[in-house]
Design a protein around this nucleic acid. Sequence first.
DNA 1: CTGTTAGCGCTTTCAA
DNA 2: TTGAAAGCGCTAACAG
Lengths: 340, 340
Amino acid sequence: MTVTIKDIARAANVSTATVSYVLNDTRAVSPELATRVRQAVAELGYAPNAIARSLRQARTRTIGLVIEDNANPFFAEIARGVEDEAFGRGYSVLLCNSNASPEREQRYLDLLLAKRVDGLVFFSTTGTVERLQPFVVQGIPVVAFYRDVGELPIDSIKVDNERIGYTATQHLIELGHRHIACIRPASVSGASARRADGYVRAIAEANLDQVPGLMVRGDNLVSGGQRATRELLASGRSFTAIFAGNDGMAIGALGALHDAGLRVPVDVSVVGVDDILLASYTQPPLTTVAQPKQDAGCLAVGFLIDRIGGSDQPPRSVVLDTHLVVRESTAAAKTDGDTA
Amino acid sequence: MTVTIKDIARAANVSTATVSYVLNDTRAVSPELATRVRQAVAELGYAPNAIARSLRQARTRTIGLVIEDNANPFFAEIARGVEDEAFGRGYSVLLCNSNASPEREQRYLDLLLAKRVDGLVFFSTTGTVERLQPFVVQGIPVVAFYRDVGELPIDSIKVDNERIGYTATQHLIELGHRHIACIRPASVSGASARRADGYVRAIAEANLDQVPGLMVRGDNLVSGGQRATRELLASGRSFTAIFAGNDGMAIGALGALHDAGLRVPVDVSVVGVDDILLASYTQPPLTTVAQPKQDAGCLAVGFLIDRIGGSDQPPRSVVLDTHLVVRESTAAAKTDGDTA
DNA sequence: CTGTTAGCGCTTTCAA
DNA sequence: TTGAAAGCGCTAACAG
């Protein structure tokens, strides 16, 4: 049915070994034979079987990418970086959405192990990285994002979430805001919760009142930011600024504020985190704490391929640069008191 | 090094065949042996090698997804649908961004062919589908999106782009707009260009003036919509509404209009196409012509798996439902004349 | 109910 | 410079 290396060998009247050597340019072959082989390949429309190749070489030139949801702009941009770098280096990527479900995440990990990926870029949804043990055992390189890898000898890429929260809140404080709300992610697990810690520290350092009711939970999505903001508004507590744990929730906040007849930034300032592509196009353009996303994806793949290539240095842990991007959703607090 | 089925067989004191049968539940095995096998599997931490399996079975349980750019929300949502459905049916997906480059697209097609995917979901960037021939020859099912597949016996999923353009424009006309601009995609290739045709037809049927200068080119991105709108504004031509060929460009238009001090929809109405997730959260929420995206992805995978399963019915061509979603970016034209 | 074994398509050692 | 052949890990006849 499908044409194999044997067919080519027969047609070109050479051994299968020679065909392989010609195709992969892995041993000197006389021009005549090479020509005959290439001709046969063209005539028969031969397409090499990467599966057989992988079995033999014990290497698939495929990496796994486990994220929460590729439709989330944040992950989408990271995925883009991963795919791009992988492609450039001759690897393809298996897209795995864990959908924030530990079971689904586990099923994907098992799958990737079975499919013998050469490496793994991993965003944990459980918060733990223990399930990576089998990869370590098999010697499959892993780069873990945003997680403490503990004893596990794997590379990791992180951001300083506490610092992010602090930076964002500090920015608002410098603008003169004294009543700052915080929409924090619902998940209690490490990573994003620490953004709220940074918020708390900034508030404390500025000797502002810690108003418990001003810290509400979102769910990382636009709708969650919207809901949380309505809650805040309904609570009757006054505030002139909102720090949202990510851009999605910040965009939701923008919408809810607008619906409530409040102007951003005149009445309320809003700052987000991530700097997703859309942040510059919201109304008004969103002030946010940017973190590299596509670059982070590239970096991860670079790490992976280093190790696939045999690099045996000790585990690296990179902390990504983050910086405040001031756009138009934040402004000086009005001096005549709170509006909301 | 890595533990294979042989190791399990030895440890459980059975044949490799029995191990295989137990693991795949593909032949009755006595409880005792089955238990011994499972125990050995657990003890040795055996992970089946899907590569070997694929080679033997000539089936990879992997499908290829070729799109332009997974960071584009439109494609992201489709990819989500594809991944989700595939996962649910036991398939994994190789993510391939053609990056709108014909060369890159071709390289990915070759790769997918070599990696022996069981099926392919394909968004062509070249506009042609001829390069799918090898898949057809190999009997690998393909679902082509938004393209005329000509003689090729493959399934296709489309939308009526002319109708989309007509619907959007008609909506504006019904609101009393008489001077309607159109931001059309830069690509001349079939698909999206037809949206402009629908615009032209609606204008013609309403006996409105066809003003050449009111049709400008964007590039499908937010920045393109922004640029195009500025152009429109700078041209000095009057218009009270904009039909943008997709939501990205519509969002760009929203931004540019705001920057110019124009209010949407009071001064200018804007309508987009696609209904990406963010469309409901723009300021104001965007009126748009929706097309199913995640569902389209599911559908495509369904088609694929039908054929992988051996279904041999004639090629199907589905036209997706599209419908106008009226939000707040469109309103009745002011009767006192044009603003812009 | 169980085992033996051929062979999927390729790469690569070994020998010529 | 070339070829023969082993074997990657698994499945599925086939035989018992």
